[in-house]
């Protein structure tokens, strides 16, 4: 199964104002990519569009996943193709029980439309233990009264439950304490046992040390202005985004 993600010249607007202005990105099965960029550069917009958020309008370009045109697909259809987004700001849904919700999601994703209830519970308990989550979370309302870090952990629990082919992690590391970051990264790495590709959006080097991306892209003002290897992050930490602009200009002139 070739689950390659190809984003080609993607232009996206919200309420008529352009946010993404020609994004190109290619993630092959098994690859880990990191995406960095200043606040407001469009990283979350890109993840939202990848999952089909209805508020965003794609004005130009294409996204395909495993050869399928994603832009025609509803969010749930994308999820069933094996895509997953760990949200930067997960919503709380009071009254919706975590384990019931996860069961509905697992059923929906499963090709037969139903998972075995006993297996599901066994899996859930194991995943929660792996993420060092208190079992009591399974019976709470979804993200209801969860701390910032607990919400992020809940995103990763969902990811482990649904076992996607491609996951986008939008600043999952923000708000996680040092131990939580380790635990969450361990959880993500567990998925790497199977063919799994990952787009990690972050502002910090630390999570990249755990997840070891081979590729790093920098998004500025709605465009990927610089792409390279993981070594880019060191330079970025030292020199900041002004340096990126210069480097990007050089890369471009070299390309011409």
């Amino acid at each position: 199964m070739n689950k390659e993600l190809i984003i080609c010249d993607l232009h996206v607007s919200i309420d008529g104002s352009p946010i993404l202005k020609g994004v190109n990105l290619d993630i092959k099965p098994g690859e880990v990519h990191a995406l960095m960029g200043p606040n407001g550069s469009g990283k979350s917009t890109l993840s939202s569009v990848l999952m089909g958020h209805p508020a965003y309008e794609v004005t130009k370009g294409s996204i395909t996943f495993g050869g399928e045109d994603l832009l025609d697909l509803a969010p749930e259809e994308r999820a069933r193709l094996g895509m997953f987004l760990a949200f930067q700001y997960p919503v709380a849904i009071p009254g919706v029980n975590v384990s019931k919700f996860l069961k509905s999601a697992a059923d929906a994703i499963h090709p037969d439309g139903k998972v075995n209830a006993t297996d599901f519970l066994k899996d859930l308990r194991a995943n929660m233990a792996y993420l060092e989550m208190d079992a009591a979370f399974a019976n709470r309302g979804l993200n209801e009264g969860f701390s910032g870090g607990e919400k992020k952990r809940m995103e990763i629990l969902q990811m482990l439950t649904l076992k996607p082919h491609l996951a986008i992690m939008d600043e999952t590391d923000s708000g996680l304490d040092i131990d939580a970051l380790r635990v969450v990264s361990k959880g993500v790495n567990k998925l790497m046992d199977e063919p799994f590709s990952l787009l990690v959006i972050t502002h910090y080097e630390r999570i990249l040390e755990y997840l070891k991306p081979k590729f790093l892209h920098i998004l500025m003002d709605g465009r990927v202005v610089l792409s390279g290897g993981p070594e880019l992050v060191k330079q970025l930490e030292e020199k900041g985004y002004d340096w990126v602009k210069e480097a990007a200009a050089k890369q471009q002139s070299a390309a011409v």
């Binding site: 749930e76 987004l85 949200f87 979804l142």
Partner: peptide, 21 residues
């Protein structure tokens, strides 16, 4: 939208939200 990104179709998602409410 959140529920739908987890594979749950719109009808089912609405049902889950009303029950949760």
């Amino acid at each position: 939208h959140y529920l739908r990104t987890r594979g749950i179709d719109e009808v089912e998602a609405r049902k889950i939200l009303v029950l949760g409410f």
